[in-house]
Simulated scan of single mutants.
Amino acid sequence: MTKTSVGPKPAEATIRSAGAVVQQPAPRRRTPTGLDTLESEAVHVFREVAGEFDRPVVLFSGGKDSTLLVHLARKAFWPAPIPFALLHVDTGHNFPEVIEFRDRLVARYGLRLEVAEVQRWIDDGRLTERADGTRNPLQTVPLLDSIVEHRFDAVFGGGRRDEERARAKERIFSLRNSFGQWDPRRQRPELWNLYNGRHRPGEHVRVFPLSNWTELDVWNYIERENIELPSIYYAHRREVYLRDGMLLSSGPWGGPRETEQVQERLVRYRTVGDGSCTGAVESDATTVAEVIAEVAASRLTERGATRADDRMSEAAMEDRKREGYF
C-alpha cells in the first residue's frame, strides 16, 4: 500500500534542517487586552471626528487625561501630525510644574496651542473675580467665547464616566446648542460604535474618547506606554494646609487663613486644576507602579477626594455642564 503524503497544516510552518522535516506551530495571535480595546475605541473616535468635522480642537491642560488624549491622537494619525490644535483655558491659578510640562510637550511635538486666559476676561470686565478666589467656575465663558472665535465644531475633552455623576450619563458625542449648553433631550443614542456628529450652524459637539476608561485604566495605560506626566502626580514634599478635609497649597490664588497651619508633608496630586480648589493627597508613591497600587486600593474618586469646586452643592457639576463648562 502506498503511503499518502500529507502536507503541513495551514497553521504550521515546515522547517528543513539537516535532512529532517520539523513541523513548527505558527505563532499565536495575541488576545487583545482591556487596554487594547479602550485604545482602539479612542483611536476610532479621533478618526471619526477628523472625518466628520471641519475644525476640531483638543482641550489640553497638561493634566494626565489631556496628556493621554494627545498621546492617543498621535497614535490615531501617525505618521502624519495631529491635524488639529490644542486649547487651554488658563485660570492663571495653575501649578507651575503643570504649565512647564504643557509648554514642553507642545514644543516637543510641534503642536499648535491656543490659550484662553481667564485674567483677560477679568481685566476687560467680561468676568468678575469670585469672593472665594477660585477661578474654576470662571472657565465657562472663556471656553465658549474661544469656541465661537475660532469656529471650533468639535471639542475633545478628557472627561470619564467614573469621575462623578454628571459625567456618568454623558455620551461620547455630546451635542451642544449655539450657546454651548447641554440639553439631555437632544442627545443621540450610540449603538455599535456609530456616532452622529450632525449639528446646526453655531452648534458644536463635545467629544469624550476616554468616556469608558477608569482612573486605574488611565494609570495602567500610562505605565504600558511610558507616558510622561507633570512631576506633581508623584509623591514630593510640599507645604500644605488643611481646609474642609483637603490639603491645599498656597500660591497666587491666596494662602491659608489665620486659623490654618502650614505643614510640610509628603503628597501627590491625583488631578490638577485651579490651585485654589485642587487638593493633594498624602502619598509615598513615587513611581507609576506605586501609584497604580494606591489607586487600586482607593475607594474615593479623584475628583471626590481632591476637588473642592465639585463639593459646592449636589448639583454643582450638573449645573456647570448645562452651562457649557465640559
Rank of each mutant, 00 (worst) to 15 (best):
R30A: 14
D183A: 14
V262S: 10
G202E: 07
V57M: 07
V89I: 13
S17A: 11
D132C: 12
P209A: 08
G254E: 09
E129P: 10
I82Q: 00
D319Q: 15
V288P: 13
E114H: 15
A293I: 02
A289T: 05
F179N: 11
K169N: 13
L72A: 03
L138A: 07
R160N: 04
P252W: 09
T140D: 10
G157K: 07
V281D: 04
S174C: 14
G51S: 13
E48F: 01
A308G: 07
D309T: 08
P209T: 00
E239P: 07
G159A: 14
V57R: 09
W213K: 10
P142Y: 09
P25V: 12
H93A: 00
Y269Q: 06
E39N: 06
V207L: 08
M317D: 03
N136W: 06
V205T: 13
L59T: 07
G202C: 04
L38D: 01
T33P: 12
A293M: 07
V98W: 00
G254W: 01
D90G: 01
E48T: 14
D183I: 09
T67N: 05
E294T: 06
R55I: 06
P83C: 05
A297W: 02
V58H: 06
T91S: 14
V218H: 01
L229K: 01
A76H: 11
W213P: 02
W219A: 08
L72T: 00
I99K: 07
R270P: 09
F46Q: 02
I82S: 01
G197L: 04
P81V: 02
Q139C: 06
E314C: 09
E258H: 14
I122G: 06
N136K: 05
L210R: 11
P32W: 11
R257H: 08
E318C: 03
G157W: 09
